[in-house]
Design a binder for these strands. Structure first.
Lengths: 359, 359
DNA sequence: CTGTTAGCGCCTTCAT
DNA sequence: ATGAAGGCGCTAACAG
């Protein structure tokens, strides 16, 4: 029915009433849709002249294939979903990871579907329902609220997933990427030890969190290496928030023999620690050294600038994408758990202890 | 061919080899696909019993229609694209807006496609190419790099767009939402005037930016109202970065008669200003009052905490979504430019001028 | 090398 | 109220 094609072409090309389709291009180039499709997908089996003719029309008509339609036949649609809680709560953390992910996805010519998890609505709509079949080819979950079981169920729905920074230790079989928490904690603790501190307290995150436990292990390991057995009284647990760090530090500083250094397991609690120290007339780092973890606070007007352990957030995002793509292809890979190196950033909040100086 | 259907059903339901489709549901419910489609789209013309039967199967099979396929017939696919430059540069600003957008889109049951503009690759791939036909039903551009002309071209490609915080003043006809920059600047300036300052300098953004010019107008208006004619020597232009604020402030403070207050047109430059003041041994706010704009810096350990003008970023995001949806429906609306109220947040960086106190 | 022909999963007139 | 059939824009055998 050339008439039909003709009229569609008229509409498409002249009035742009309906969008240009692969058929219009085929008709204009004098070839079949199959050939156009081949050119569009860079198939090798097309005569150079034909290919060029098609490309010319594509260019002239500014034709772009419809991504949805494109995915229908074989399933994949070139979209990866990304979920994360608290976009607002910790913008720096989230933005860095997101930027890494976006970067890698763009390189892979894949679109990024953002699915923020809302605090209020709890999980009224299951994650699985939100990205079931045609929404995405796979998903990257940043610090997911879902349990291991729920994640496994997601996987079983034929949706490849990758986790960044799991909360609780994850079930084997769920691919994930995290920072070298233990190594970072060791570096932080050793830094304090090297400065001469012997009484080093820790303000941890909530028990059970992977990052809490791994950082705690590193902290203990470094102490042990220095021949110091950890004093249980020198460890307080916080909830990652500034206030909890403040409270924990207050508690620690009221001891008869207060520590000369405090290692807070994240930056926010380190900031709370500094506040608490100041309220007691202590100067940081002169009277108390403080180390944080994450390096997500802008050091702009912060005084003192925080010594902390930096996580490679952007790289974690990129790595998660790369893992996911391998999953999408092979369906099975070996190294399911990737750990990326952290490193200590020495700034102004740490110094040798007074006692040491006065000796 | 019931055999075919049967085998597909077998695969789908038993092995989940292929995904459940509307046909499977129809078969299981003993109705036609058309009926299932009607139920899925909440059409009224379905017998209650039939509807329930279908819903039961949908529930049991955890069936979710494929969004891509769903959109094919009529065009809309339930996706809105969001672009923004510098996700990383100003995470707080971006995260707040994004959260607002995500929130509103979720309420509208619409998915969010994130298209970060990469600095490095310039615009090698035009925005239009990245979201042409089937990628999104519309787009929200946060502080787009594109010119008015480019934006109009986008629109003409039948892609409804909404702008948040345009850089340059925008062509009429392009819907956009922004903060009440002039009003905010008036509030900031009046605050300083009320404190008794008479010599109030301004550190503006680059000339030509909408936010620069509007804030400048507000600044001038407030001064005029107080009977003060603006001294050109008291206005410096920055580039929004901390360093430029630092340089501009240094320049201002070296004057023979330095200002007693500085109104920086964003928070970063306000921070640079405070740094410059400190380097000269001036105390803020005792010797110099400083006001910022945006309220995007976390005031955590910042001393002094910044008095600034807050923009309703989340609300701007939500409003952009609402505008876009009206565009998607009506194709024409009247109030194409929405301005949301700002308000002054008084904190620690402003106080009465010394001279005034000593009088 | 190129064209023909089925679908992909869903929606939507038409009939009934 | 329900079903049958065509088509959305594209890809992927299968022929030639």
């Amino acid at each position: 029915m050339p008439q039909v094609v003709d009229s569609r072409r008229f509409l498409a090309v002249t009035l742009r009433e309906t969008r240009t389709t692969i058929r219009d291009v085929a008709w204009l180039a004098g070839v079949s849709v199959a050939t156009v499709s081949r050119v569009l997908n860079n198939r090798p089996d097309v005569a150079p002249a034909t290919r060029q003719a098609v490309l010319d029309v594509v260019e002239r008509e500014r034709f772009r294939p419809n991504p949805s339609a494109r995915g229908l036949p074989h399933g994949r649609i070139g979209v990866v979903a990304v979920t994360a809680p608290f976009i607002e709560d910790c913008p720096n953390y989230f933005a860095s990871i997101l930027a890494g992910i976006a970067d890698a996805l763009e390189d892979a010519n894949t679109r990024l579907l953002l699915l923020p998890a809302r605090r209020d609505r709890a999980r009224e709509a299951r994650l699985g329902d939100r990205l079931k079949p045609g929404s995405a080819d796979g998903a990257i979950l940043v610090m997911p609220l879902e349990s291991s079981d729920e994640l496994i169920e997601l996987q079983s729905e034929r949706l490849p997933i990758t986790i960044i920074d799991p909360r609780a230790p994850l079930d084997e079989g769920i691919p994930c990427v995290a920072a070298a928490n233990a190594a970072g904690a060791i570096a932080a603790t050793e830094h304090l030890l090297d400065l001469g501190h012997r009484s080093i307290a820790a303000i941890t995150g909530p028990a059970g969190w992977a990052s809490t436990e791994e950082r705690r292990q590193g902290y203990h390991a470094a102490l042990a290496q220095a021949g110091i057995s950890p004093d249980p009284g020198l460890t307080e647990a916080g909830d990652w928030q500034v206030e909890s760090g403040h409270a924990a530090a207050a508690h620690l500083l009221e001891r008869q023999a207060p520590p000369t250094a405090i290692f807070a397991f994240n930056d926010e609690m380190a900031i709370g620690t500094i506040q608490a120290a100041r309220e007691r007339g202590l100067r940081v780092p002169d009277d108390l050294s403080v180390v944080g973890f994450d390096d997500v606070e802008r050091p702009l007007l912060m005084t003192p600038q925080l010594t902390t352990v930096r996580q490679p957030l952007g790289e974690m995002g990129r790595m998660a994408v790369s893992l996911l793509f391998r999953l999408l292809d092979n369906q099975r890979i070996d190294a399911l758990r990737v750990v990326l190196a952290t490193h200590l950033v020495t700034r102004e909040s740490t110094a040798a202890p007074r006692t040491h100086i006065h000796v």
